[in-house]
């Protein structure tokens, strides 16, 4: 028997539950800490972004329309599936420069984040929703609703736990997401896509676009069918002209410390809806 040649993976985009290459046909080379070639990852174009937003929009009302219990179970399922694949993720993190110990710790963190937010799905409404004592014969209550389609610019590091820390709260309330993962360490995000595809998350709820953030950001911020963008993982010195793109549809632009994991990380991507009804016979 000769030495077996290992199979190199083609790291593709994740759009609408499928794994297309970039329509541009372009890729970016990822190199290991020692400078050796690791993989070519797809370089998403603005057209890929357009497709991803379309997929996210298409999936949104179904995702939001599910019961909170169901969303909670699906997010919990993500933890289950990741737990079973953790060695793959750890290898990828190490490939991209983490120590083995850091990679293991990050996996613990990443998986626990799914569990944490799974539990929030049917609880945050009771923390932030209210029954309002108006001065009149009306029943009046306020409930959080998902804002719609959210663009998530994931932190560069930690590339996996950071991404999940920002993505999971977006999903809790029923938003769908277009994620731009870490540029320096995108591999685990792509494997996360494969995990998502084999879990119970419906196609289109999470879409993953690898590629240069600064190329994609103007298109993401300028897209009128994207309701909110999380810039936590974007550079803080963004060109104001790029930020200006966000006002086209009065986009909600969020930055929040990934370590801040309370219900407000969820409500950043919620709209509060207040409903009035008379009380009478």
């Amino acid at each position: 028997m000769g030495e077996r040649l290992d199979i190199q993976k083609t790291y593709k985009l994740f759009i609408g539950g499928a794994f297309p290459r970039s329509e541009s046909g372009r890729t970016t080379e990822v190199v290991a800490a020692d400078g050796s070639f690791v993989a070519n990852v797809a370089k998403a174009s603005r057209k890929d972004l357009r497709d991803a937003v379309k997929a996210a929009r298409g999936a949104q009302s179904d995702w939001a329309g599910r019961t909170a219990y169901n969303r909670g179970q699906i997010l919990y399922r993500m933890a289950e599936v990741m737990e079973g694949r953790r060695s793959q993720f750890e290898v990828e993190l190490v490939t991209c420069g983490s120590s083995a110990a850091d990679a293991a710790a990050e996996l613990d963190e990443a998986i626990d984040l799914w569990v944490w937010y799974a539990g929030w799905c049917d609880k945050f409404q009771q923390v932030v929703g209210t029954v309002n004592p108006v001065a009149g014969p009306f029943f009046n209550f306020t409930v959080p609703e998902p804002t719609g389609v959210v663009g998530v610019v994931a932190p560069e590091q930690p590339s996996l736990a950071g991404l999940i820390a920002r993505l999971a709260p977006v999903l809790v309330s029923g938003n769908t997401a277009v994620v731009i993962p870490s540029e320096v360490a995108p591999l685990s995000a792509i494997s996360l896509s494969e995990t998502i595809a084999t879990s119970d998350v419906p196609g289109g709820v999470i879409n993953m676009l690898t590629g240069p953030k600064l190329d994609l950001l103007p298109w993401l911020l300028g897209h009128l069918d994207v309701n909110a963008v999380d810039l936590t993982g974007a550079p803080t010195d963004l060109d104001p002209a790029v930020l200006d793109e966000a006002v086209g549809n009065v986009k909600r632009v969020i930055r929040r410390d990934p370590a801040d994991r309370g219900p407000y990380a969820i409500t950043d991507f919620c709209e509060m809806k207040t409903i009035w009804h008379p009380i009478g016979r």
Partner: peptide, 18 residues
């Protein structure tokens, strides 16, 4: 819509988010 008035309209109250 941030405010939904059912069987009423244009009601406002300090306790009611708008």
């Amino acid at each position: 819509a941030g405010i939904v008035w059912a069987n009423t309209y244009n009601q406002f109250d300090p306790a009611s988010p708008f």
